[in-house]
Design a protein around this nucleic acid. Structure first.
Lengths: 147, 147
DNA sequence: TATTGTTATACTCTATAACTATA
DNA sequence: TATAGTTATAGAGTATAACAATA
């Protein structure tokens, strides 16, 4: 859905954020990657970790991560191996091919950002970041739906 | 999903927008309304129109609108009646009860916005709006997913 | 008994195509 | 034949619970 009271700042931010997210996801896809798979590679870039840790970092349920890692592994972009210290655990690691794919993803995201924010000066982009950082977005966990 | 490179302005805007949207939807729900139903009432507030027009204005498929209007009608918040001039058409209209519900929704959204943007001065809110308006969000329709 | 990863199930959203009644 | 609304169906995404292996 979309289209309406952008005279309200909350709606404006929500809609712009949604469209920006769509543009970013399109960029993530240029390397042939599903957006969530690309996000996963980003998480793995700094260093390997267990599936449990990875799921927590990405804020997804561990069961969802299984399908993501199956795909990444079948594409040779990430690997799972048993932790010798605790054989219940999988250590997840990005591969060289995965790192190369991530480089392409990064370039595509940068291009998307140049497009999105190209009408703003550097100073204005800093200003926008500062304002967005001050939006109170975590106040008291409101529920969403209703009958 | 969430949680990652908020050092990139695109991600920051996308994430803040998503959380802001969640907060707004929670507000839409306080009057007991499903968010999309509340959005529909907003569209209808200025005046009645056909389902086709309403679907176009909301950027949803006409078939999705059917369920929304069924719910709104069963709750007495909107009404469909045949257009005498063209009996294929339904004129959709907000009811008094619908307008009353919309008033409650508006109040809840205003409260949510005060919470979201309460740390910003009026001038800063104007500034934020101006910057968001200049984000280029409609450049050349990029597709999203990939294998 | 608790934890890690996995599988299975169900529920929401959305996209599409077929159907009806009018024109 | 074309259009407005409706219904039916299928796909993606997500949330939850049960399960096997290991601790």
């Amino acid at each position: 859905m979309a289209a309406l009271p952008t005279d309200r700042l909350g709606f404006l931010l929500s809609f712009r954020g949604e469209l920006t997210g769509a543009r970013i996801r399109a960029a993530l896809g240029v390397a042939g990657l599903h957006p969530r798979n690309a996000m996963t590679l980003m998480q793995l870039a700094p260093g390997s970790m267990s599936q449990r840790e990875l799921a927590a970092a990405m804020e997804v349920d561990p069961s969802q991560l299984v399908a993501i890692l199956n795909e990444l592994e079948s594409e040779g972009l990430a690997e799972r191996r048993r932790d010798p210290a605790d054989r219940r655990r999988h250590i997840v690691e990005i591969t060289e091919a995965g790192a190369a794919a991530l480089d392409r993803v990064d370039a595509a995201v940068s291009a998307a950002e140049r497009e999105l924010f190209g009408d703003l000066t550097e100073a204005e982009q800093v200003l926008l970041r500062g304002l967005l950082d001050r939006v109170v977005v975590d106040a008291g966990e409101h529920d969403c739906d209703a009958g």
